[in-house]
Design a protein around this nucleic acid. Structure first.
Lengths: 327, 327
DNA sequence: CGAAGCTTTGTATATTTATTCAGCATTTGA
DNA sequence: TCAAATGCTGAATAAATATACAAAGCTTCG
C-alpha cells in the first residue's frame, strides 16, 4: 500500500498546526486540501512519529502503600492505585482498572496459564489492557456463570476478553456457578468438558479474582442468593467470597450447603497457585480482603489507595474487630 | 498568585488525554471536574511544559534556490519559500509571509534603523512576526500614504505593526505618496516633520520594500494612477516600482513627472542602505525584480519558489528579452 | 462585618475537529 | 475491455473541544 502522503507534506501540516498554532481550516488553505484531509494528515503524522507528544511522567501508583502492604501482610505483589477522592464506586473501578491494567499485564508471562474469576473491577481491568499482544496464554475460567444472562463481568466474558487482548486460548467453564444440590453438581464435575477445565486450573501460574462481601454481593444482586441465604452464610461465619467460595475471618472455607453446590476453583487449588491476585476497589470490603490474605487465598492485591489505607489501619486492631464480629 | 493546580493533577489529566487517548469528558469524570476545566488543565499543562509536542523539522526554505539566486545576481541575502502549487495570489502571499517572518526577523539587529515601504506581501510578513520582542528599533516609514483611507498594507500601517511586534519606535511619514506637482511636494519636504523622517531614512541599516509592476499596481488599483498614466510611464521605459519610484529595465529611475511628485525614500538613498530586501510573491513581476536587482535597488530578496525559479530561468535569456521589450 | 474586587468553577454555547458518506479515480482481475 | 474492488477526496454532519458568561467562593480593605 504505497502512500500518497509525502513526509514533507505531513511535516508541513504538522508544523503549521502544532507549532504555529493554526487551526485545521487555516492549514487546509495553506496546503490546498479540505479540512477533513488535514485532520487525516495530522492523525497520520502522529502515527508516523512525525509529531511526538510526550507527557511528564505521572505515576498512578502509591509505591509507599504497596511496600507497606507487602511487608505487613507478606504479600508477593501489591499494586495500589491513586484515586481522586469522592469518586463513585463505578468510576473508582474504572480508575483502578485503567491504571492497574499495565502493571498486571507485566505480571503475566508469555506462556502462562491464567485463571480468571469474574468481578466488576477485573472486568474494567481487562478492558483496559493494551490491544492485541501475541502471547500464548491459556486463560481458564475459574468459576461458572452466575446466571443464564451472560453478563459483562462474569468470568466467562472477562476470560474471553483477556485471552483476546493478551493473545491465547480460552478454556471456558460452561456451567452455572451453583447447582441446586451436591448430586447434580458432582454429576457435572464428572463431565469431560468440565473436568478438563477444573483440572487445568491447578496448573495456573496466575489467578485474577475478585473478593466479594456478603452484603454487597453479585450473587445477592442477581438473585442467586436471597437475603435469608446471606444471613445463613453469616451465621456460619462467612465474611467474604472468592469465586463463589465463602470463607470465614481466618480465610477458611465455611462449611455450608453452598460449599457442595459450587462449581469453581477449589480453595485448595487456589492456595497452590503461585500468584493469586485479588483485584478489588473500594473501602467496603476490607474484612473480606483481610480474611482472604490470612487464609493465603490471595498472594497479591490490586487495590485503590483508599482501600489500602483502610486495610493498613485495620491490621493493627484486627484482633479486636474479629472478636466483635463473632459476638 | 498561588495556583490551585497541582502538577500531579496536571500530569494525570495530561496523561489520560494524550497518552491514554481518553476524551476530555472521560478525563473529566476521572478527575471529578467539568469538561471545561479539563480543557483548561490541558492548556495549562502545555504551557507549563508538562506536555511537550515536538514536530519533525520542516524546512520551509529552498536553500538550493537561495544559493543560486545569491550567486547569479550577487545578492547579499535570499530567502526562497516553498509553496504549494496552485495557491491563489492571496494565499501565496500569506504562505510567504508566514515562513519569511522568522528569517527576516533574524536579519534585523536589536538597535537597527529599519525603513519600510508598503506592500501586500510585506503586510503578511509583519503580521506573522513573533509577538512582543524587546528590541530598540527605529522603524521609519519609507513612503507616504497611497490615499487617505488608511489601508492595512500601506507603509504607515505596516511600519506601526513592525515597530510594535519587534519593539521600537515608529517614525511616521504623514503625507501622501504623490503630490499634485513638484512645487507642493517640495514645500512639504521642507516641513520639519517630513525632513526628519526623510533624513532618517538615510541611516537605515535594513529596508523592507515591495516591488511593484506597472500592470498589477497598487496605485492603479486605488485610482492614484489612471490607465493613461501607466501607459505614459511605460512609454518612459518604466518596468517596475519601489516605494512609488518608477525605474527602467536597468534599474534607473525614470524621468517622468511622477518623479518630482513623489514623497518617499530616494532611489539614491535606497542604494546606500546596506540591506534592502525586496519582499515579493508571485511569478508575474520578474521583469521588475530583475531590473531592481540590476540597478542595485535591492540587495536581497524574499520570494516564493515559483517566482525564484522564473527569475533564474529568465536570467540566462535576459538580454534577448530586454531588447524585445524595447522594440 | 460587609462590600468590592479577584479567582475559580460549571453550564451553555460557539468553535473546531473527526467521521460518515457518496462520488470519482485508479488499480485489479477476469 | 469491462466490471469489481480499492482508495482518495471533500461536503455534510456528528462529536469533541474551547470560550463566554454568570454564579459562587475567597481576599482585601474600609
Amino acid at each position: 500500500m504505497p502512500h500518497n502522503y509525502s513526509d514533507d507534506r505531513l511535516r508541513l501540516a504538522a508544523r503549521l498546526y502544532y507549532i504555529d498554532g493554526l487551526g485545521q481550516n487555516e492549514v487546509a488553505k495553506f496546503v490546498k486540501v479540505s479540512q477533513a484531509k488535514v485532520s487525516r494528515l495530522l492523525a497520520l503524522a502522529r502515527e508516523r512519529g512525525i509529531v511526538r507528544i510526550s507527557v511528564a511522567e505521572y505515576d498512578p501508583r502509591r509505591r509507599d502503600l504497596e511496600g507497606q502492604l507487602c511487608e505487613r501482610f507478606g504479600l508477593a505483589t501489591a499494586v495500589v492505585l491513586k484515586a481522586i477522592d469522592g469518586l463513585n464506586t463505578s468510576d473508582l473501578r474504572r480508575a483502578v482498572g485503567h491504571f492497574a491494567a499495565s502493571p498486571v499485564d507485566a505480571l503475566i508471562k508469555p506462556r502462562d496459564v491464567v485463571a480468571v474469576a469474574g468481578g466488576r473491577t477485573i472486568h474494567e481491568l481487562v478492558h483496559h489492557l493494551p490491544e492485541p499482544k501475541n502471547r500464548a496464554l491459556t486463560v481458564v475460567q475459574a468459576m461458572g456463570s452466575v446466571d443464564s444472562h451472560v453478563n459483562a463481568f462474569d468470568a466467562q466474558e472477562v476470560g474471553r476478553v483477556l485471552a483476546q487482548r493478551l493473545g491465547g486460548s480460552f478454556l471456558t467453564l460452561n456451567v452455572p456457578a451453583f447447582m441446586p444440590d451436591k448430586r447434580t453438581r458432582d454429576a457435572l464435575l464428572q463431565l469431560e468438558q468440565v473436568r478438563v477445565v477444573h483440572q487445568r486450573l491447578g496448573d495456573a501460574a496466575v489467578a485474577l479474582v475478585g473478593i466479594g462481601t456478603l452484603e454487597n454481593s453479585v450473587f445477592l444482586e442477581r438473585g442467586v442468593l436471597t437475603a435469608d441465604d446471606v444471613d445463613e452464610l453469616a451465621e456460619a461465619g462467612a465474611v467474604g467470597e472468592i469465586g463463589g467460595r465463602f470463607f470465614d475471618a481466618k480465610g477458611n472455607e465455611c462449611d455450608t450447603p453452598w460449599r457442595d453446590r459450587a462449581i469453581s476453583v477449589e480453595v485448595d487449588q487456589l492456595r497452590r497457585i503461585p500468584l493469586v491476585l485479588g483485584v478489588v476497589s473500594g473501602s467496603d470490603r476490607s474484612d473480606a480482603i483481610l480474611a482472604a490474605i490470612r487464609g493465603r487465598l490471595v498472594k497479591g492485591l490490586v487495590i485503590d489507595e483508599a482501600g489500602a489505607t483502610v486495610l493498613l489501619a485495620m491490621s493493627s486492631s484486627a484482633a479486636a474487630k474479629t472478636k466483635k464480629r463473632k459476638s
